[in-house]
Computed example of a mutant assay.
Amino acid sequence: MRDFLRNRRSRLTPDDVGLITAGRRRTPGLRREEVATLAGVGVSWYTWLEQGRDINASAEVLDAIGGALRLTEPERAHLYVLAGLNPPLEGGAKGVEVPQQLRDLLDSWLPRPAILRDRYWNLLMVNDTAQAVFGLGDDDHNCLISFFTNARYRSMHTHWASAAPDVVAAFRADVARAPGDPEFGRVIDDLSAVSPEFAELWARHEVGLPAQSVKAVRHPEAGELLFDMTTLAVVDRPGWYLEFYNPQPGSETGHRLGLLVVRNPG
């Protein structure tokens, strides 16, 4: 904490933050009292924080200090970690623009299914095969909500009932990483209001960590499909995840998937 704040403070000049100074300055960058003034905190308190003393810093105060020091988003997240707090999370999927490189990546996985989602399990992009194979439509915006409310998806999921507890447990593990996050709360409240099954499973408080897994689908045209699913984090987009589905070796999935794509091009 001490070294990080000193370094960030030394790289700024009074002109950078709109301060007017007179005379020669012996200290490179901003002074501690200037940072404290810009952040609206006491000079002694900021000094203790920079010295790494055991004091409590709220998210609001850290945001103010981050603004005063002109921290970037990664630097701001690092400040939270140094202070022992969870880094701030970005909002949900509304208005999110998916970079063309990621769009091209999902399309390059065709004819195999691929999905891009965020930490709240909001669907950011679904390639054409994923839509056809998993029964996802234009009204599907969240993986968890669709899992419980999309009748077509449920009917196609071979082991829906046995998979449901694991799905909810995995979602709870994600929620636990961001206590009090309102977007997670919105998903939980909205789904609980329309799905008694989800509400019952959520009340169990089971927690599980998803790993590489198998997804089984009974498609009305292609029949039984088995996929190995691998989830990858998008490093330059914290909270975004790519789900790639590969036909399970030894199954007829690859052949059946090819026939499905031929019958339903584009």
Rank of each mutant, 00 (worst) to 15 (best):
F4S: 08
F4Y: 12
R6V: 13
R8Y: 04
P14V: 03
D16T: 06
I20Q: 09
T21R: 09
R32Q: 05
V35K: 03
A39S: 11
G42M: 06
I65M: 11
G66K: 08
R70P: 04
R76P: 08
H78G: 08
L82E: 01
G91R: 04
G91C: 04
D104Y: 13
R112T: 12
R119L: 12
R119C: 10
M125N: 12
L136A: 04
G137M: 06
D139G: 14
D140Y: 07
L144R: 05
I145K: 14
N150H: 05
A151Q: 14
A151T: 13
Y153L: 15
W160V: 05
A163W: 04
A164W: 00
D166K: 01
V168A: 00
R172W: 07
A178G: 01
G185C: 07
G185S: 06
R186H: 05
I188P: 03
E197D: 15
F198G: 01
F198L: 02
A199N: 01
E200S: 12
R204G: 09
R204M: 12
H205I: 00
A222G: 08
L226C: 13
D228F: 07
L232R: 09
R237C: 03
P238H: 03
G254Q: 14
R256I: 00
R263G: 10
P265D: 12
